[in-house]
């Protein structure tokens, strides 16, 4: 049961994030909610990489457990995903900055010139 705790955390974070992004009204809060989903995804991949009885995938530090090194793929994936997440968050925030300059508000209900 305790081993599944990370997955419950992931589910909770995804739900909070999606809830915040759908029902949020402030653009900055929406960006925060999106990065919450992103954090949950990273946590998910890292948690999946855990193997019972495995050792860290660094040969010099694995000691006598070198035969039980886990695959370093999830770490590599997460690092990539973090970098990509940083880029998308930066782009979202810069777009929000431009939107504030143009519309003078951060309320998503006011920023709807394109419709119909």
């Amino acid at each position: 049961m305790i081993g599944n705790l990370p997955y419950f955390a992931v589910a909770a974070l995804v739900i909070f994030g999606l809830f915040g992004a759908i029902f949020g009204r402030n653009l900055v809060k929406i960006a925060v909610a999106v990065s919450l989903v992103e954090a949950a995804t990273n946590l998910f991949i890292i948690a999946l990489g855990y193997r019972n009885g495995g050792s860290i995938p660094v040969f010099t530090q694995a000691g006598g457990y070198a035969d039980y090194m886990v695959l370093p793929t999830p770490q590599a994936l997460t690092l990539t995903a973090i970098v990509i997440g940083m880029a998308t968050t930066a782009l979202l925030l810069s777009l929000i900055m431009l939107l504030y300059r143009h519309y003078g508000t951060l309320d998503v209900r006011e920023i709807r010139r394109l419709r119909g």
Binding site: A21, I22, R25, R112
Partner: peptide, 17 residues
Amino acid sequence: LTAWHSGMATEYLGYMV
């Protein structure tokens, strides 16, 4: 139909979910 295309970014996300 035009009312449905409301222009709200968060509603669009809601439809995806």
